[in-house]
Design a binder for these strands. Structure first.
Lengths: 248, 248
DNA sequence: ACAAAAGTGTTGCGCATACACCCATGG
DNA sequence: CCATGGGTGTATGCGCAACACTTTTGT
């Protein structure tokens, strides 16, 4: 039954965000990267950590994540979703429950110049992070890889216009394996989530058609969950209002 | 950057749990049911609500959910997983962040006799609940239906031994549609998640073989996530330590 | 002309659905 | 012996992976 004891004595609520973007490494391949913040006080002084902060009493969870994100990168995310609530007793001194979000930024995001305590890290080669943050990033990466398989979040990492090769490269970077260009083309074409434009990208070999993301599809997929409670719902797309996602 | 302002002024942390089980209705069909608790104080005095309570400062999140569950039903769950953290400013008076879990109980669970403020409800026909709890139950149901498609949680609703028809009925109750018995049989047989026993259930027509759940498969599926950080991981099974699931 | 990426065609396999059919037991 | 659920066999269709092939550009 509902407990009647006094409310949470000294439990603090924090919000952190795993922010993913893409960067082209020396060898020219895309890699998943994320910005981390160097801690300047104990505990874990000097270690790198996920951007985050205390939840303000007048601030929604997602708003706190957005704020965090803006403070760290100066940018708005193309995708934002709650990841998990971490609250084990021993994970930080003095009982902290962290609501963790994960986000996508379009390729080529720059950090503000004054931010010298913030740096991009290759998601595949992270140092030891503060708290349980390695664990959290691993989970976020797992979620990203999973979600890329049944949704179109990959578009959240690309600019407005992109070629099919661009999109395929994003999938390859996330899934860490090569995909067949021919089959990939057919899959996305059949999914009807892309709008072909009349523009082409030239400069190397045969010009490639530029595509745009079809925002209508996403809306139709999710269905109007908040107004209409019982829906047949397509496969594995999360209900919008509950998952509190930012539209791509 | 990490905020330096003072920690959460008056934010309280609650833990609630959506507990699913199965019950055979008048017409003999299985239906998904969940226990709700009648509120005996404001806000929403008299309305039915999810079982839950305040998080204790020395208690892990999952432990709080288990406690809630035991207090409500007197039973241990066969499955327990975090659902979502709800924390909108307006959802309850005086800023409450609710970490919501969802759980499965084996069929035929009985409520303790003294619990007259607790009742089973058909998940498909809920009254108006307190707070945003209708919303939460809808989301939990969506998650249950989804997860039943790519994992073996359905077994969490059955006793140790069961027939293939039993299992199929569970799927049909959750998915709210009939399945072909022949094809269903082949699917689960090929998945190698069931161990046939030498026992049969008699009593009506041809005896049906009893099966047992193969616990090895689940373990192999999830992989040892905590010890081994990078795993190839099968499809869409959640990493165990992070999702903090109770083994079926 | 030739290299390389863009884009098309074709084939085969695996798997899910549909449904016809046999088996074993209680009444 | 017959109704009913347990259990097996088989055909059809779709989606996807594999890979051969054509097209169009830059150099």
């Amino acid at each position: 039954m509902t407990r009647t004891s006094s409310p949470t004595d000294t439990i603090r609520v924090a919000v952190s965000t795993v922010i993913f973007s893409l960067r082209r490494d020396e060898s020219g391949r895309l890699a998943v990267v994320l910005p981390l913040v160097r801690r300047t006080r104990d505990p874990h002084d000097g270690l790198w950590a996920l951007p985050g902060g205390w939840l303000d009493a007048a601030e929604n969870l997602e708003a706190a994540a957005s704020r965090t994100l803006a403070e760290t990168t100066g940018l708005a995310p193309s995708y934002l979703e709650q990841l998990y609530a971490f609250g084990d007793v021993g994970r930080a001194p003095g009982r902290v429950v962290s609501i963790v979000y994960w986000a996508l930024l379009r390729e080529g995001a720059q950090l503000p110049e004054d931010a010298h305590n913030v740096r991009w890290f290759d998601a595949a080669h992270l140092p030891a992070l503060a708290f349980d943050h390695n664990h959290i990033v691993d989970y976020a990466l797992w979620r990203l890889r999973n979600k890329v398989g049944y949704s179109r979040i990959a578009h959240g990492l690309l600019p407005e216009l992109f070629t099919l090769s661009d999109l395929r490269e994003v999938y390859e970077a996330i899934l860490e394996r090569d995909l067949d260009p021919a089959n990939f083309r057919r899959q996305v074409e059949n999914s009807a989530t892309l709008i072909p434009t009349d523009a082409f990208r030239t400069g190397s070999h045969r010009p490639a058609r530029l595509y745009r993301y079809n925002h209508d599809v996403e809306l139709a997929d999710r269905g109007p969950l908040p107004p209409d409670p019982d829906r047949d719902g397509g496969a594995a797309s999360a209900p919008s209002a509950l998952a509190e996602e930012v539209t791509i």
